[in-house]
Every structure is written in C-alpha cells, then in structure tokens.
C-alpha cells in the first residue's frame, strides 16, 4: 500500500472516530500573534490551545464524570493544574522536549484510561480496584503539561522575558481550562438529575474510550509516517 493510500485510509478511519484530530500543529497565525502581541498574546495562545486542544478537555470531562460534588471538582482540577503547571513551566524553561506525537499518544491513553475507569473497566475486566484517582490525575497532569510544553517550545519564543512568557502561556492555559470546563460541568451536573443520565454517562465514557484509542492510533501513525 502506498503512503498516500495509507493516509487516505487513516483519514477515512478517523472520520468514523470522534475528535480524533489532534489539532496541535504550530499555527503561523499564532506565531504572528506571539511576535506582535507581548505577554498578553501568550495568555491568548495558551487559552486558545487549551480550548481547541480537546484531548486535554476530554480527559478533564472524564474526571468530572467521576466526581460527585463541586468541592470534589475543585480539588481534582487543582491537582491537575498543579501537575501540568510543573511540567509546562519546568520543561519549557529547561528546554526539555519530547516527540510531539509520542507525548500526544500518551495523552490519548489518559483519555482512554479515564473512560475505561468510569465504565468500571478495572473491576469488570481486570478484577482490580482502580488506582487512586487523585494520584492518577496528578500524574496525568504532569504528562499533559509536558505536552503543552512541547507545543509552546514549537513556537519561536525568543530569549527576552522568557520565564514571563512561559508563565503567561500557563495562565492562558488555566483560563482556557476554566472557560471550557464551565459548559462541561454545567451539562454533566444538570443531566445528573435526569432519568437518561445513565445512558448519557455510558455514551460519553464509551466515546472517551473510542476517542482515546483513535487519538492514540492517529498519533502513532503520525510518529511513523508523519512529516
């Protein structure tokens, strides 16, 4: 099979999967914004990346599904934020990078993991209790932060105000996260009181599993055949 045929096949397959497009490429438009907009532009691009980088949001949606009350949501989101801030700031500052496809593939697995856990996969299929969620959210937070750092490092950032730019990008990520979480939390909490919530819960988490697998395949394919 030719490379082109393979790409067509994968592209067609992706259409059947939800949200498989890890739209994380460096945008020349974003680079323009960063070139001309000062620190505020880093906040904007960080927020934009979080809102459009749906693998992060899918994972968070999965976490929220699992939680019972608002206090829990704040606790888990805080842990996730601490986790991704550590690696986003640390790795960018130190110039540590990973292959973007590989790191995004691991992030895809975190989406798969959350859907699988929410559906009771550990108990049902592995006959095990699922690992401590708070710890897992922190670990996955570190991984997501590393992915965000890799993205930030793909931009031409320059050397002046370097740390301020990283922190601004991180602030943007947090703002984007809050913006995106508001409707997610709203929908999930409102739906909880409905009779159809059980079906919605299953549908959404099956979707997370499928999306996680699809994203993973997509990134691995990108790693081997991308350019």
């Amino acid at each position: 099979m030719t490379t082109l045929a393979k790409k067509k096949l994968v592209s067609s397959a992706l259409l059947l999967f939800p949200l498989l497009l890890a739209a994380h490429g460096v945008s020349s438009g974003d680079q323009e914004i960063l070139n001309n907009g000062g620190l505020l532009s880093y906040i904007y691009v960080g927020a934009k990346h979080m809102v459009t980088g749906y693998d992060h949001l899918l994972f968070l949606a999965g976490v929220i599904f699992y939680l019972q009350d608002f206090k829990d949501i704040v606790r888990f989101i805080t842990v996730f934020t601490i986790g991704h801030s550590i690696t986003l700031i640390g790795a960018t500052y130190l110039g540590i990078q990973a292959n973007e496809h590989l790191i995004d593939a691991v992030i895809a697995l975190s989406v798969l993991y959350k859907g699988f856990e929410n559906l009771g996969g550990f108990e049902k299929y592995l006959k095990n209790k699922s690992p401590n969620l708070l710890l897992m959210v922190f670990i996955f937070g570190l991984i997501h932060g590393f992915g965000l750092s890799t993205r930030l490092q793909s931009f031409e950032v320059g050397t002046s105000q370097f740390l301020s730019k990283i922190i601004s990008f991180n602030v943007g990520v947090e703002l984007g996260q809050i913006l995106a979480l508001i409707p997610i939390v709203f929908i999930i909490t409102k739906w909880k009181s409905k009779k159809s919530y059980g079906a919605f819960y299953k549908a959404a988490n099956f979707y997370l599993v499928i999306a996680g697998i699809g994203l993973f395949i997509y990134q691995i394919y990108g790693y081997f055949y991308g350019h």
């Binding site: 259409l15 939800p18 949200l19 549908a203 959404a204």
Partner: peptide
C-alpha cells in the same frame, strides 16, 4: 468535521 462526527457518535451511543 471531527466535531460533528463526535457529536454524532455520542448521540448514537446515547440513543
């Protein structure tokens, strides 16, 4: 296209 595909899939699963 992916967003629409996703919503469709979630919708189908839900029903």
């Amino acid at each position: 296209v992916y967003w629409i595909g996703s919503l469709l899939l979630v919708g189908i699963l839900f029903f």
